[in-house]
């Protein structure tokens, strides 16, 4: 049983490291990642769970960090775009296919694609469509994003 009232010190596992933060129960994971831990890869967009710019992974599944309380994340493994360290094949594919313009939505897309290709290495079109509908790109780079993801998925099919 856990009970947190007022402000509390909690430990978050972020990108493989234990990080200690002081939070109120109503603090959102997105704000704690950005303002306390300096992990500004997750972006505030709609802050309403619609745009996906703030997507991070919790235990390997994508979540919109604007819709997660920081206290809820204690005891779970968090992965932000910084934790990929530029080594995800998705990141290389985004660069290779020019899958961004302003880049604001890119970390969210990268995290969703990274999770999808972890769970479905050779993802078919229908799976890609389902997963990628969680994120919005107002520069409308959708076709390039799809090309990038498709390239990584096709490589996964060959392995």
């Amino acid at each position: 049983m856990r009970r947190i009232e007022g402000k509390a010190i909690i430990e978050l596992r972020v990108n493989g490291e234990a990080r200690t933060v002081a939070v109120r129960p109503s603090d959102l994971l997105l704000d704690v990642l950005r303002n306390q831990l300096g992990l500004t890869g997750a972006k505030p967009g709609c802050k309403n769970g619609d745009c996906g710019a703030c997507t991070v992974l919790m235990d390997g599944w994508p979540v919109k960090s604007c819709l997660v309380l920081a206290v809820e994340a204690e005891g779970h493994e968090l992965l932000t775009v910084e934790g990929l360290e530029g080594k995800s094949p998705v990141q290389a594919a985004f660069v290779g296919h020019g899958a961004f313009q302003c880049g604001y939505c890119t970390p969210g897309f990268v995290m969703v694609c990274h999770a999808m290709l972890t769970h479905h290495p050779g993802a078919e079109e229908l799976v890609m469509e389902e997963w990628l509908q969680s994120n919005l790109c107002r520069c409308t780079s959708y076709s390039e994003i799809r090309d990038a993801v498709r390239a990584v998925a096709n490589a996964g099919k060959r392995e």
């Binding site: 009970r3 947190i4 009232e5 007022g6 129960p25 603090d27």
Partner: peptide, 17 residues
């Protein structure tokens, strides 16, 4: 940001909840 704070309770059992 949520302006107004609240208590966060995480029960282990349905009875605690």
């Amino acid at each position: 940001m949520i302006a107004r704070n609240f208590a966060y309770l995480q029960p282990d059992t349905k009875e605690q909840a």
